[in-house]
Computed example of a mutant assay.
Amino acid sequence: MTESAQVSIIMGSDSDLPTMQGAIAICQKFNIRHEVAIISAHRTPERMVEFAQQAHDRGIQVIIAGAGGAAHLPGMVAAISPLPVIGVPVASRHLSGLDSLYSIVQMPRGIPVATVAIGNAENAGLLAVQILAANRPELLKQVIAYRQELKNTVLEKQERLSQIGIANYLNQS
């Protein structure tokens, strides 16, 4: 684990890494110090407990936890750590990630886990950045600029659609 990381991106299995890449990319885009680790709630429970107990002492400020199937990792980490935890439901072969989503969002009172859409680790990364930006004016400016970029992209697409028409737009997309 990285001593200077602000965000910890954890997952239950290496098969979750392609999904979690979205959160990693956002941390990189915003120059957020982060760490990435495989921590299984079921196969390495002692490691999970140790991680959750010590994360805040190491300077971690937000935890992003991805998990598929039973998806216990985000909730168990949230039950142990005082830090905000963002759960990323990872799509499964059998139930398309609905099992993961239900597992993560159905937390008991007093143990919140913020949850993003199935497979949307990018939004988990953005939420982590926004949490950090609440006390960092320069980072908040970056978030505002990012939102403006999103707006500009939509406006550019609309302008293109208006200029070339629906059929040509669909053919060029």
Rank of each mutant, 00 (worst) to 15 (best):
T44G: 05
G12I: 06
S13D: 07
A37S: 11
G97H: 05
V85W: 03
T44Y: 05
A37G: 09
S81P: 00
Y102I: 11
A55S: 08
T2D: 15
T153A: 12
P84W: 01
A145F: 12
N120D: 15
F51Y: 14
V105F: 03
A41N: 03
I39A: 06
E122R: 10
H42G: 08
G110W: 08
Q28I: 00
A124V: 03
L140H: 10
E156M: 09
I64N: 01
G110P: 09
G59W: 13
L170K: 02
A41H: 05
A78M: 05
Q163D: 13
G125Y: 06
A5P: 08
G75Y: 01
H34Q: 04
Q130W: 06
E3Q: 15
I64K: 06
I111M: 14
A145T: 14
P45I: 07
H56S: 15
N152A: 13
S96M: 11
Q148G: 04
G165H: 10
V36L: 14
F51N: 01
L161I: 08
H56I: 08
E46Q: 13
L101M: 13
I26A: 03
L95S: 09
I9Q: 05
M76I: 15
V7P: 04
I10S: 03
H56D: 13
P18Y: 07
L101A: 13
T115R: 00
A65T: 03
E138T: 12
I10Q: 01
T115S: 12
T115Q: 04
G22H: 05
A121K: 03
H34T: 02
A128F: 04
L17T: 10
V129D: 03
Q163H: 14
P82W: 01
R147G: 14
E3C: 08
R147Q: 15
L17P: 03
V105A: 06
P137E: 11
A121H: 04
E46M: 11
P82E: 05
E3D: 14
P45G: 07
A52N: 07
G59D: 13
G87K: 02
T2I: 14
L126R: 12
Q21R: 10
S81Y: 02
Q148N: 08
H72C: 06
I32N: 00
V85F: 07
A37H: 01
Q172I: 08
N31P: 00
I111T: 13
L140C: 06
R147Y: 14
I60R: 01
R58E: 08
M76K: 02
R58G: 01
I118V: 15
E159A: 15
H56P: 02
I104V: 10
A79E: 01
I60S: 00
T2P: 08
G165N: 10
G119N: 04
I104E: 05
G12F: 02
I166L: 15
V113Y: 04
L73C: 01
P108C: 09
P45N: 07
I131K: 00
S13T: 09
I80S: 06
T153W: 11
A71I: 07
Q172M: 09
P74T: 04
A78K: 03
L83S: 08
R93E: 09
A167V: 14
A70Y: 06
G22R: 06
P74A: 05
G59L: 15
V113L: 06
F51S: 02
Y146I: 05
N123W: 08
P137V: 13
S103T: 07
A71K: 03
I118C: 12
P74W: 03
Q158H: 12
L127K: 03
I24D: 01
I39M: 07
G75E: 04
R43T: 10
L127M: 13
E46W: 04
L161D: 04
